[in-house]
Design a protein around this nucleic acid. Structure first.
Lengths: 142, 142
DNA sequence: GGTTGACCTTAACCTTGGGGTAAGGTTTAA
DNA sequence: TTAAACCTTACCCCAAGGTTAAGGTCAACC
C-alpha cells in the first residue's frame, strides 16, 4: 500500500501521515523506488491515530496511546485512565465554552440591535466601569 | 501610561499588546524616549480586545468589532449580528466537543479497566471492522 | 518511443496568538 | 554609582498540519 491508499483507508491526509512519521509516531517501510509502504500493522496504527485525534487526543497523547498499544503487557486500566483524563479535559473545555456563550448571550440581550449607533455590547466590552463576568479563554493548562 | 501599566489595567500581557499593535489593531503614541504611551482611548481599545478575545473572537474578528467601535454611524444591529454569529460558532464547537465526549464515554464504558492487556478502547480505535461513530475534530470551517 | 496524468519524494514557507529569551537603552531609587 | 525594574527590537519556538515548489516514478495510451 502506498501513502495515498493508506490515506484513503484511514481518512488522514498524506501530509498528516508524513508528519506523524516525522514525529516518530510510526515507521513506514520503503520500497525500492523510495515510496513508503504500509502494511496492515501500519494501517492499524494510522487508524488509531486518526480516531484518537478525532476525539481530541494531541499527538503527544497519541504517542502514549501507541506505547500502550505496542505493550503486550499493558493493563487496560491504564488505557481507560487516559480516556477518562481526556474526558475531564473536554469537560473543562465545555464548561469554558459554555461560560463564553452565556456571556455573549447576555451581551446580545442587552443590545437593542437597531439602526442606532448606541450599542450595549461595545460599551460592555470597552468600559472599565462595567463589572461583567468575562470568561477567560484558556483550554486549561495541559 | 506605559505598556506595563496598560497591561496591568487590561489584563493583557505586554507581549500581546505589542502583537496587537503589530497586527494593526491599534496605534500607540510614542514618548520622547521611544516608550509607547497609552491614553484612555487606547485603554478602551485594549479592554475591548481583551474581553472580545476572552469570549472567543479571533483577532480578525476583533478588528471588525473595532471598526464598528470606531464608526460613529454604525448600526448596533451589526454588532449584535457579529455576536450572534459567534454564539452560533460556539454552539458548533460545543456540539462537536460533546460528541467527542460521548464517544469517549462509550469507549471507556466498554473497557474493563483491569490488569489485563485486552482493551476494548484500543481495539475500537485501531480496528477497521468496527462501525463506531468517530466524531471529527474540526472547529467548523470558518 | 513519447507523452500525459496521477502518483510519489523532500524542502520550505504560512497559519494563530502569542511565550521566551537575547541584547541593549532608560528610569528610578537606594 | 549601581542595581532593579522598566522599556525597545529581533529572533526562535509551539501544534498540526496546509500549501506551493521542484522534481522523480509509474502506468496507460498513441
Amino acid at each position: 500500500m502506498n501513502i495515498g491508499q493508506a490515506a484513503e483507508a484511514t481518512g488522514l491526509s498524506t501530509k498528516s501521515i508524513r508528519y506523524y512519521e516525522s514525529q516518530g509516531l510510526l515507521q513506514a517501510q520503503r520500497q525500492a523506488n523510495g515510496y513508503r509502504h504500509y502494511d496492515r500493522a501500519c494501517i492499524r496504527r494510522l487508524t488509531l491515530l486518526s480516531r484518537a485525534r478525532s476525539v481530541g487526543f494531541s499527538l503527544q497523547e497519541c504517542a502514549e496511546l501507541l506505547a500502550l498499544f505496542d505493550d503486550q503487557k499493558r493493563h487496560s486500566k491504564d488505557v481507560k485512565r487516559a480516556v477518562q483524563h481526556k474526558i475531564a479535559q473536554l469537560d473543562k473545555q465545555l464548561d469554558n465554552l459554555t461560560r463564553m456563550r452565556n456571556t455573549l448571550e447576555e451581551l446580545a440581550h442587552r443590545c437593542t440591535g437597531d439602526e442606532k449607533p448606541q450599542c450595549a455590547i461595545l460599551s460592555d466590552l470597552s468600559e472599565s466601569e462595567r463589572p461583567m463576568t468575562f470568561t477567560l479563554l484558556e483550554d486549561s493548562h495541559e
